[in-house]
Design a protein around this nucleic acid. Sequence first.
DNA 1: GTCTATAGCTGGATAGAC
DNA 2: GTCTATCCAGCTATAGAC
Lengths: 210, 210
Amino acid sequence: MSAKTTEDIILNAATRVFTQKGFSGARTCEIAKEAGINRSLLHYYYRDKQTMFNLIFETRFKELFTGVISILGSEDSLEVKIRKIIEHEISQLILNPDLPMFILSEVAQNPQFFSQLTQKFGINAPKNLLKFENMVKKEVENKTIRKIDGRQLFLHIMSICIYPFLASPVIGLIMKMNETEFCELMEKRKEEAVTFVLNGIKFNYEKNSN
Amino acid sequence: MSAKTTEDIILNAATRVFTQKGFSGARTCEIAKEAGINRSLLHYYYRDKQTMFNLIFETRFKELFTGVISILGSEDSLEVKIRKIIEHEISQLILNPDLPMFILSEVAQNPQFFSQLTQKFGINAPKNLLKFENMVKKEVENKTIRKIDGRQLFLHIMSICIYPFLASPVIGLIMKMNETEFCELMEKRKEEAVTFVLNGIKFNYEKNSN
DNA sequence: GTCTATAGCTGGATAGAC
DNA sequence: GTCTATCCAGCTATAGAC
């Protein structure tokens, strides 16, 4: 990140511009301007716009997904997994609030991106998710949590962590917050989200004991 | 939607293309092709790309926001509001799965869009949200629900409804579902989400009675 | 490695025939 | 109202000087 070489300066500038505007909205001359260099230097270091974009997209893609997926596949208990995912996700997103919008909007337009990259990095998301689902299933059978589809629970958790960052401009306006206040709300959200999720799946005695 | 006149045919085609590719990714020639007409007809009916886009964006913007905001401002009880929002949102999104990505990605690049349009339509989102927050506050004081920040609860609800549609390409792949299966999961999600949220805010006797 | 100049293309917009 | 032809701007990419 510290950007000493011209190569790094360009890459950082390109990352900012692509992340904010997406591939089709980004302009190479804006990247050059942001980096404070000549436009032809972009081609010298990274051949063309698409090549540069692919490189950046891969990096940011890993930033977004590898953390959660590895926690999903860990040996922790369900409750610990839930805590870890939430704390990890929200902490990361406070540092990179525009990351999910960048990745998801590009993937929406180009779904093959996702499968290509998970293959390339040997990420086995479906396997790790299945492991999570099986844990949920077992806890449901043991009646340590209420009856719930593991996929839905996984979606609940991801939703609660990621959505606020996807909608932050809207949220900022309707809740009349500036960026700092938004971050504070997200900071508090870590604990709140854990409580909410754990309560949300708690076994319901009154309802199920008869 | 039925598209009898050329004007409507163009508008429907443009809606599809803009929604899928966004403003900067959309090409007027693609819209013309999709509508099966000549490119210059676009200009005849809608002057230019930006004008056409603004028109479509306004319409889709209303589709996404007016429903929830009016429920927020209604006289229903908190529980009924929660049920109504969830059922309304997920039902709408099953019919328009790519709507939130369209709106939110454009707003992310152009935050003034949101404030302009809410002003223009006289939507007072902050006021209706405050009403919701006050209801939450009152229920917390009455100990009918656990202690929770109304803003966080509102975010929980919106997140759980909207996020799966924003991430649907990713979700489809890691859960190995096609579009139909995804819709079925969302159909079931209505009930699951209501249970989850209501449990998530339930007053916790064990913890608070001593 | 970095710059200037320029080529070449894509896409939006307009004029004008029918 | 619809089409053809054309123009023009903006953007990417390349060649070549320093």
